[in-house]
Design a protein around this nucleic acid. Sequence first.
RNA 1: GGCGCUAUCGUCUAGAGGCCUAGGACACCAGGUUCUCAUCCUGGUAACCCCGGUUCGAAUCCGGGUAGCGUCACCA
Length: 452
Amino acid sequence: MALIRTRFAPSPTGQMHIGNLRTAVYAYALAKHNSGQFILRIEDTDQKRYDPQGITDIKNNLTTFGLNWDELYIQSERKKAGIYQQTAEKLVSDGHAFYCRCPAKNVKQAGYSTILRDPCRDRGLTSGAVKLRVPDNQQISYHDFVLDKVVSWDTNTVYEATLLKSDGFPTYHLAAMTDDLLMQISHILRGHDWMPSTPIHLLVLDYLGNRRPEIGHLTDILSSKGGKLSKRRDSVFCEAFLELGYLPEALLNFVILLGWAPKDNQELFTLEEFVRKFDPSGFQKANPLFSDTKLNWLNGYYIRQKTDTQLIQLVKPFVKQDVTDTKLAQITPLIKDRLVKLSDFPSLTGLFFSPPDLDKNLFDQPDLAIEHLTLATEHLSSSPWTKEAIETGLMAGIKSHGWKVGDFFMSLRVAVCGSRATPPLTETMLVLGQSESLTRIRNAINFLGQLG
RNA sequence: GGCGCUAUCGUCUAGAGGCCUAGGACACCAGGUUCUCAUCCUGGUAACCCCGGUUCGAAUCCGGGUAGCGUCACCA
């Protein structure tokens, strides 16, 4: 098999979002599954939208997710070498392109354009912007390797796109195709939104006289609110998910499943497993909806797979309270099964740092609770501070009074934690310490007594 | 409006003419484990867009609707 070379070719105009991440991981897997190369190419040919921070962000993100590139190219630097200028001039001299001095139209505001043949195409100008000369009455087609389908157009529906702008910079149409050819890209994998301009690219590819890479168009990720994912309405940026405490491996796994599936229904993938099992026939053809419920499950799953030591390190940036390493190491295992996102840490652990606000509604039977707590005080003030001693003593007391085990511990739980849903009670008291635990229980007795 | 793509449970999907009384995962519901919640285990509810056609037989093939999405810039 010929060498597989894929590229991830973002334009650095904003932060990397989950759609970009998905495109990148698919291109990466396609290359690596075949022992090929994954190329990062920065498409910064739009001077008006240039953002110097963008390149750094893209590199950092790819690194975070383990998508290491083999080669890096930056189009603005290649432009300086005159590569695109030369290609454009060759197309003109071959009769496949022409110069144009029409003012740039802004159909974005007008709606849509219906003029497909440019008035400058036969004027024989010798300078200006360069536009593609589109032939009439021809069929142009390609096989899409994602859709696994031949798609074709009548050239009479193709407009004469600008290839080189009057500022000397190439448009995507010229730059991307020129580079794909020069860089020996074997597979172009890109967003669905590029599909309509594919006939333009096919023409450019053919006129440049080389060969056509395989081309495949990925689905778009849709918003659960309807329509395309929106940067305003939806949370879409990788950075934002990371800041919420989503693990990179969870986000990556989630995004892999959004548009690709293996025949055997496997759901859990590390990057390495995905690369190994990758198969282009698994690509989805219909647009998926973004919904974070499965992402939440995946994140919880990956959190539970961490060792306590690993999790303690991961959770540190999300700890809001002032805490020693020792205490953090005691608390973290107690809430491991309860964490959905790392940022849940502060709300799940508040009870370890400050006494609870008591609410009488949390106690089922205040009078009985006083009895429960009184017994607890008696035992706990004299008990050795170990799990076994605490529990056996308490159980003996419960049994002698004929109480329901669940009722007793709920009273104690609410007194100590201020909530009916908490980490394991004994372990929690162990962390709090004997003195603090007893203080909280006595406070609760007083609180309940005053209600009386 | 033109051009193009798509259409299986609420969501992500398996399904390439009989293996489908349509399978898995998440979510949801019920039960079990457990001193609560969570985890974990077991079970359940739930889908082939519509209409024609081809065929002995269609979720799977074809045609037509309908709907969704994309795009129509000297932006990518």
